[in-house]
Design a protein around this nucleic acid. Structure first.
Length: 270
DNA sequence: ACATCGTCCTGCGCGC
DNA sequence: TGCGCGCAGGACGATG
């Protein structure tokens, strides 16, 4: 589920709850989602949260002792904060017990989410992170275009590739393509310079709109405090196959690109 | 470097 | 109302 705007929305809500607080202990409820669960339980205990960060769809909980807890929500992961005495959520997989009787809970019905611990000073060289491209929200036009030059293949696939830029998933890839009026099936090597520049601006504008709307809540996503986003109400193409284009009225088409449903306007997008 | 496929899981909505 | 099926916003690894 969560792409960059959803992770950013969670991050914003999570900061005031966690920064400066102590993690009293860690409870691992689903071992398969956690790398080295015993090590995490041993080390993420009575330890202070220094800072929270995000890169692409990854969330980093920067702790004392040169440790960073890395979370990826994948398709169905959610973070929530509750009181210890509150009822459990249905699919709790990891619990970070905080001070003040609060618990930060990683819920994930499909258990595809991933959690691991890495040294803060060498995060960038961690095998799971070292191939990530620059964060899609802040990448400069220069860097974006340089990196695009090195790519082949169809536009949508490149946007989804986290080693190109990090943070764009299926929804925001389709929405970015529509905003640029580019056909998601276009080979990136056929894009003109103005089209490449437009693509960079459109990707950032699409992500920023998602953040302003506190994320897209199609089926899974809720903010930290259980509040849905509103971006789903103003999507141009994602999830609108067979419905009229908001711009020209043409019926939107759908295909699979990299096994991901892709929706676009055959009239507006070329 | 790229494309395709299978895999990890559970829940939901749809058609019958 | 119940059942089976296909689909789901992600990423990785194997294979070609």
């Amino acid at each position: 589920m969560p792409e960059l705007p959803e992770v950013e929305t969670i991050l914003t809500a999570l900061k005031p709850v966690t920064i400066g607080q102590r993690i009293v202990r860690t409870e691992v409820l689903r071992q398969s989602m956690v790398q080295e669960p015993l090590k995490i339980k041993r080390l993420v205990k009575n330890i202070r949260v220094l800072d929270l960060r995000r890169h692409g769809k990854y969330l980093f909980i920067n702790l004392e002792n040169n440790l960073t807890l890395v979370l990826h929500l994948r398709m169905s992961g959610r973070l929530a904060v509750r009181k210890i005495s509150d009822a459990e959520f249905r699919h709790e997989r990891l619990r970070l017990v905080l001070q003040k009787n609060l618990v930060l809970v990683f819920n994930d019905p499909r258990t595809l989410g991933r959690i691991f611990l890495a040294p803060t000073d060498s995060l960038a060289s961690h095998p799971r992170l070292k191939l990530l491209g620059p964060d899609a929200l802040t990448v400069s036009q220069r860097k974006f275009i340089d990196r695009l030059k090195a790519r082949k293949g169809v536009l949508k696939a490149v946007l989804l590739n986290q080693s190109f830029v990090a943070g764009i998933g299926n929804i925001y890839a389709d929405e970015t393509c529509f905003r640029t009026r580019l056909d998601p099936r276009r080979k990136v090597q056929t894009l003109s310079k103005p089209e490449r520049e437009k693509l960079h601006r459109a990707a950032i504008a699409t992500l920023k709109k998602g953040i302003r709307n506190r994320g897209t809540s199609i089926s899974d996503f809720l903010g930290l405090h259980g509040k849905p986003g509103i971006n789903q109400n103003s999507l141009s193409v994602y999830g609108r196959k067979g419905r009229p284009c908001r711009s020209c009225g043409t019926i939107l088409k759908s295909t699979k690109i990299q096994q991901r449903t892709t929706v676009w306007c055959p009239e507006c997008q070329r």
